[in-house]
Design a protein around this nucleic acid. Structure first.
Lengths: 193, 193
DNA sequence: TTGATCACTTGACAAATGACAAGAAATTAT
DNA sequence: ATAATTTCTTGTCATTTGTCAAGTGATCAA
């Protein structure tokens, strides 16, 4: 199987030699999932790291009223991990689900640990991945705390325009922290301009 | 200077031997700041990691209207880092400011890097620290997206009761994503019960 | 093909929150 | 000690967002 996209992803994030990338991705294996399939279920312990090569995914939790709250939307290419479950080996609170047909690469925690402790460049890459994810989340908190729904919608539209062709508005609304009715009205208002 | 609290912090987060903790904290140095002092200013590049031994801090950004939006409130003992600035060596977008008189330990990025690459236990600790911080943030996003202000207030009151004796309601309101008027009204409503 | 379900929209109304202004209380600076 | 500043509260009113219910069109399964 062709690991070009996986390898290129490493190279695009970080100055790193090709040979080292090949070493890192050596034990990654390929698989695919149809749309609306669960990648990692809540209450299970994650034992693998996943790279999404193609497709769209989301993670969600269930609130007290048993309604799904979308916590994240993933657009390939990117890594998809439940860090807490993977690195603390505890049950995941979130469910990870494909939204379209998806193509993945995965490798076991043991290989991740081996790379983490044996390949300095991979350590740096791992930390960078964390830092980047952390700040995406941080920006989202700031948005949630200080911007109104319309602004959040417009920002998302600008940053990830393609998800609007691939993810239902209901899920996007939940991700934005609003109801689908409100999102529909916001879109109507904007289309008037 | 007595590094007991700093060393104990490592031991409390993670199963790790005392000797290794001493090695990790060997080059940490002590300092103090008066209340309302800037620890790390926006637009500067962070070159040190900070451990808050005593006191309260916050980080904040300025929005378009030049209003301060509090992004995080720190309660000792904990590490205080701008991960993006420190590990990508780029200017910080946030300002880090003491809210009370504070006691710190710090060490340079070079020492962090040396520990990260030479002490496997420190690598694991670093990653764990990231994971924990990431999920605190994740929980906050979920709260912001799916809980109303009163619930968020009650959760914070439950999780960090002491900040209400040490941090102004204006800052707490901003952290909760509401105005100080609204927070005042929420508190009034709750006090009636 | 025919129901059944789902995604999206819309209307009417209610609830939550913000904006602005004023005043009391607490804190800080001189 | 006094004045200045900041914090917190509260009133009035506007805006934003939610809730519930209905309806339309699209999609999916048998």
């Amino acid at each position: 199987m062709d690991k070009t996209i996986l390898n290129t992803y490493f190279l695009s994030q970080f100055p790193i030699e090709k040979e080292i990338v090949h070493e890192i991705t050596k034990y990654f294996t390929h698989f695919e999932l149809k749309k609306q399939t669960c990648l990692l279920d809540k209450n299970t312990v994650s034992t693998e790291t996943f790279f999404l090569e193609k497709g769209y995914m989301r993670s969600y939790i269930l609130n007290e009223e048993n309604e799904e709250v979308t916590t994240n939307i993933y657009e390939a290419p990117c890594f998809v991990n439940d860090f807490l479950s993977l690195f603390k080996q505890q049950p995941s609170k979130e469910t990870y689900q494909t939204l379209t047909d998806c193509v993945f690469w995965k490798t076991g925690l043991k290989n991740v640990q081996s790379n983490f402790h044996n390949i300095p460049e991979f350590r740096e890459f791992s930390r960078l991945l964390f830092v980047i994810n952390y700040y995406k989340l941080n920006d989202r908190v700031i948005e949630m705390a200080s911007k109104k729904a319309e602004t959040r919608y417009l920002n998302l539209l600008h940053q990830k325009p393609k998800i609007f062709q691939n993810v239902s508005l209901k899920i996007i609304a939940s991700y934005l922290g609003i109801t689908d009715s409100t999102l529909s009205r916001i879109r109507k208002e904007i289309s008037k301009l």
